[in-house]
Design a protein around this nucleic acid. Structure first.
Lengths: 252, 252
DNA sequence: TTTGTATTTATGTAGTACATAATTATCTAA
DNA sequence: TTAGATAATTATGTACTACATAAATACAAA
């Protein structure tokens, strides 16, 4: 009897899909592939809606798997697939007998699963690199707002290490450390994690750009940036960083 | 016999968990909650590793569900939960008989599922708002690189509409349109989608900041920004945008 | 009061069965 | 022979059942 119910649903969803397609594309045969949402897709969507509509807060519990399954008329299996997704995003956690509770989702959790250079195609990587440049140029005000003497000294140390560096590897390490420390200084966890996740994506850039001769060497060094940060003039930062990143910007 | 295998695995993972706990926390009762990865977690992780290690390209196919299940010694059920997650991230697609193929994952797919104001707590929303400010200040170079006459005219139109606006709602709409158009001008799809997803998160800001009296009114208007964009001096942009956003920056 | 044991319950995993859709193979008719 | 219809094959999608595991609760014993 339950199976019958499911079959009916199939027809309904098919009907809706066709209707939606006709509505958005009145021309005959515009042929956008039918969405064909699986049950799991729909349950996932409904669960998210449920959470939002009822404004369920972190710590609150949501219905048991069986209750959801029965309420939606699907198998527990399907519900579990949907819940599995939300669990991955950090939206829910489940304890053995307590049922499931809403948790504060981790904004970056989905991202860090796919931000891997071999998975993303060149074009997306290029866009993410641009994103990085944009972030660093705009970072100034957060830095001036939250810089601490310790962090400034840390930057000093990195600059010094860089000047003493003899190998290319060491210089690259300093480069990475310097910029990472900047993100740290910004005092924004989301931003910092974003940078951490993004970093491995840019390995290709080093390789790619090392092949090109730099038409203009970055005229602003790390030391110059630190000097600005020691000062009290946020206006100076963006364009200093722009000049520092100019070699990269010119390759866009 | 298969069940036996699984039971053994349980003991092993328990052992490791205990060991890891003791190793990182020699002090008695430091009590950090045991990770306790589920099978689905592990399978998901292994699948991602498999894809990366073998450098499988979009369009390539991956093993059938049953093959994976047998290879890993878990039930098809577990494999499906893991695959369901990857499917949600846009990492794979599955056709009825063709099996599953790798697809170019959508960087923002995970994000857009949780970036909803009622789900995120205040702190994260604040961080995301900061992120937005950082992005807009740093956006300049992409804008100058890719601006088109049509887009500049579009900005003009918005500014004009804003000046004629009589209601607060209309002014807010213009505000949103203006900044959205900027992201569009940057010619970076990832960035643009990021902004689109982020927008609804900031509704609270309007509400929140309207309660505070602005100590300094943004001295740089949209019209000023457009004038700069018509020009040919990227250096002028970051600090102009900083001044434009100053009322927000001051509330950080 | 504390400790230990049994019960209950919700999640985690296994396994079977079948529906659905797409591919492939086979067969028929012009 | 080839086009077109039909059947067999196969991998995913869904349902259902069974049991393991862990946590909470209740209750008994020291």
């Amino acid at each position: 009897m339950k199976r019958r119910k499911q079959i009916i649903k199939y027809y309904i969803s098919l009907h809706f899909a066709t209707f939606a397609c006709m509505k958005t594309e009145p021309e005959l045969f515009k042929l956008k592939p039918i969405a064909s949402l699986t049950m799991a897709d729909q349950v996932e969507s409904q669960l998210r809606e449920y959470i939002i509509k009822r404004s369920i807060r972190p710590g609150d519990s949501i219905p048991k798997e069986m209750e959801i399954a029965e309420a939606l008329g699907v198998s527990r299996n399907v519900v579990r697939e949907a819940l599995s997704r939300l669990r991955m995003l950090g939206l829910i956690e489940s304890k053995k007998k307590r049922g499931m509770i809403l948790t504060q989702p981790d904004v970056m959790k989905g991202l860090e699963r796919i931000l891997h250079p071999t998975i993303l195609d060149m074009n997306v990587r290029k866009e993410l690199f641009e994103l990085r440049l944009v972030l660093e140029v705009g970072l100034g005000d957060l830095l001036f707002l939250r810089k601490t003497p310790e962090q400034l000294q840390q930057l000093d140390a990195i600059v010094e290490r860089e000047q003493r560096a003899t190998t290319q590897i060491e210089r690259i390490r300093c480069e990475v450390d310097f910029h990472s420390t900047l993100y740290e200084m910004a005092g924004n966890d989301t931003l910092k994690r974003f940078q951490t996740i993004l970093m491995p994506v840019f390995e290709y850039v080093v390789e790619y750009e090392s092949k090109l001769e730099h038409t203009s060497v970055g005229s602003v060094t790390h030391a110059d940036l630190v000097k600005i940060l020691y000062g009290n003039n946020p206006e100076a930062f963006p364009n200093a960083m722009r000049k520092h990143l100019m070699p990269h910007l010119e390759h866009l």
